[in-house]
Computed example of a mutant assay.
Amino acid sequence: MHFTNMVEDSFAYAKGAVVGEWMRWVLLVVSTIIFPLIMGYVVRIYSGKEPAPELEDWGSLFIDGIKLFIIGLIYSIPVILVFLLFMGGSIALFSTGSNAAAAAGLGSMLLGIVLMIVVSIVISLIAAIGMIRFARKDSLGEAFNVSAILAHIGKIGWGSYIAALIVLWLIGIVFAVIVSILGIIPVIGWLIALFLYPAFIIFQARYMVTIYESAPAPA
């Protein structure tokens, strides 16, 4: 897996989607504000469309975005359950007023945070491929076909897959820093940031597609 090529390909894809396509860029900004629309656009990217697709068939775009949102929400349920279980127990212990119970509550809270992080990471590894499977197969069920998802990740290679996601995570940090700096600039700063968001979302989506397609095709 050549990470430099993947980043360059994703950047070129995002650039082609917005640079020189000013009306599309403005519509993408609007879609980012009405978030199901940009999520629906991500579904179209996940489906493998090249070059970046036009913004059309808005009803279908909105529905696909809602479906992608629901998939993400369902995948977040285990994390929410861990949070409720440990945080609820911690609050109950704190409320007793006992120092020993408070210490136990603090321990429970820290354990809950660690478990939430672990569960979140595991779930995100599966969900990322599941969402692309949903777009490729046009089936909500395929988003939760865990055996097929794990098999696909196995073809990519777990080490390569995780390393590729770390690269994306680092790029995301750089983007967040840039946006934070722009936020300091009155008026024009947040406007520039607003226009950068859809470009970065497209970059992320395309990058995930390159990861997905890095799995060897069946013989």
Rank of each mutant, 00 (worst) to 15 (best):
10 S>V: 10
12 A>E: 12
12 A>Y: 05
16 G>P: 00
24 R>C: 08
25 W>D: 11
25 W>S: 13
30 V>P: 04
30 V>H: 03
30 V>M: 09
33 I>F: 10
36 P>S: 00
37 L>E: 02
38 I>K: 08
39 M>E: 14
44 R>Q: 14
49 K>F: 07
53 P>H: 11
54 E>Y: 09
54 E>F: 08
61 L>D: 11
61 L>Q: 10
65 G>T: 05
68 L>A: 13
70 I>G: 06
73 L>I: 05
73 L>M: 15
75 Y>H: 06
78 P>D: 13
93 L>D: 11
97 G>C: 04
98 S>V: 00
110 L>I: 12
112 G>C: 03
112 G>W: 02
115 L>N: 04
122 V>D: 00
124 S>F: 12
126 I>K: 00
127 A>Q: 15
136 R>C: 06
138 D>T: 01
149 I>M: 02
151 A>L: 04
151 A>Q: 12
157 G>Y: 05
160 S>C: 02
163 A>Y: 09
165 L>G: 14
166 I>P: 02
169 W>R: 03
171 I>M: 06
173 I>N: 08
174 V>M: 05
175 F>M: 11
185 I>G: 11
186 P>W: 11
186 P>F: 09
191 L>Q: 03
191 L>I: 15
199 A>P: 03
199 A>R: 07
202 I>L: 10
203 F>W: 03
204 Q>S: 08
205 A>I: 05
210 T>W: 00
213 E>W: 06
214 S>Q: 09
216 P>Y: 10
218 P>C: 08
